[in-house]
Design a protein around this nucleic acid. Structure first.
Lengths: 208, 208
DNA sequence: AGCTGTCAACTGAACGGTTAGTTGATATGC
DNA sequence: GCATATCAACTAACCGTTCAGTTGACAGCT
């Protein structure tokens, strides 16, 4: 469920993949990260309970401090572990921003916990200057690609490229971001419909 | 225990506005609500400290429980106190959705704490079914107005009216919602520019 | 006007439970 | 044998909540 795990054990000179030992630091780290992802997504940093994370990971509280130093350190590690998912270039195509928005929508739809995690981060750890470096670097490339698409005329230059990127992401997140009050329960829309609304919105935004 | 905070002081028969007595229940309630608004906006429910709120309000901790029953009761009271601001009809005009988005943007821009409060509510108190009733009722009226505007042709019917309302609100909140990573510091836009981007976005969304 | 009884606003201090973080001992793989 | 992964027990602080008691405001009585 989590991002690719390097599990860099080759440095220790192991040749082939050995049988899983009863004590596997990497596996424990991984279980802790997964349990912490779920706990932080639901309760945030202040509301998360270290004991619950340790229990859910079938590990011990002390290991959290051994591996991650502190509760906040664990949160940063969780965020970092999912950063590659968030910045994945493979979903981005400056020449097809509506399609990009659709794929982004699918991401948020399939992993709403990651969207919540990002929101908690924004609320609780703003200005901590942690782990947003790589994301900003990834955005630079995307903004450059949008600039190029604008020069070629396939995208309107009404909006600056960074604004356009922000708008696409915002619209893709719309139904995750929106408070529940604005969901009309009597007239709820299916996932497929909402996806189509997002795509159409972006299509209208970039029309020359 | 939780819902018993009507505080109808008119029963005491106060005639004109007298000099503020040293002990004024209404004033204390108000100070607590203001201090709680600031505290909850910054730290959320789990992160807020009842002691800090009491100190900031120059009141005693026990009074919070006397007036609001519990920490969560206080949060709900804070939300309720600001609900009228959020649902204010005077800013909404179905025949001028871009302008509406601009006015909404101004709201979020002038009171970012209220936007944070709403986000905390969504994350920490989702499904509590408290105090969202009036907001949903207010939305019903707005959705009906949009439906009418669509029938008159001044607004596209590409999107259902409730979706359109959600999109307008989402776009108006865009720069409050967006994580800091998507702010380009080297190329930051002024408030006036961002306001214009929001308006132009909605204009494009509703174009027939 | 002065005295007094009553009620509500207010307070300081504590309580019971919980929490993040620590430690030192034990078990395990190499 | 040695490094380290693991764990139960521990602690010191903290936090929401309660409570017994105090103080101020005001109405009624004389």
């Amino acid at each position: 469920m989590l991002g690719s795990v390097p599990a860099d054990r080759s440095a220790r000179g192991e040749s082939a993949a050995p049988a899983r030992p009863l004590r596997d630091a990497d596996a424990t780290r991984q279980r802790l990260l997964e349990a912490a992802t779920a706990e932080f997504a639901v309760h945030g940093i202040a509301g998360a309970r270290v004991d619950r994370i340790a229990t859910a990971a079938q590990a011990n509280k002390a290991q959290i401090y051994h591996y991650f130093g502190s509760k906040e350190g664990l949160f940063d590690a969780v965020l970092g572990a999912h950063a590659n998912v968030a910045t994945a270039e493979e979903y981005f195509d400056a020449d097809d921003l509506p399609g990009t928005a659709g794929r982004l929508f699918d991401q948020f739809d399939s992993r709403p916990d990651l969207a919540r995690l990002a929101t908690w981060y924004r609320l609780e750890r703003a200005g901590s200057e942690r782990s947003i470096g790589p994301i900003m670097a990834a955005n630079e490339a995307k903004i450059a690609a949008i600039t190029l698409a604008q020069r070629q005329g396939s995208v309107t230059d009404t909006f600056p490229p960074d604004v356009l990127l922000g708008l696409v992401i915002t619209l893709a997140m719309a139904w995750v971001t929106l408070p529940p009050e604005f969901e009309n329960p009597a007239n709820a829309h299916s996932t497929g419909q909402r996806r189509e609304f997002v795509i159409e919105s972006v299509r209208r935004l970039i029309a020359p």
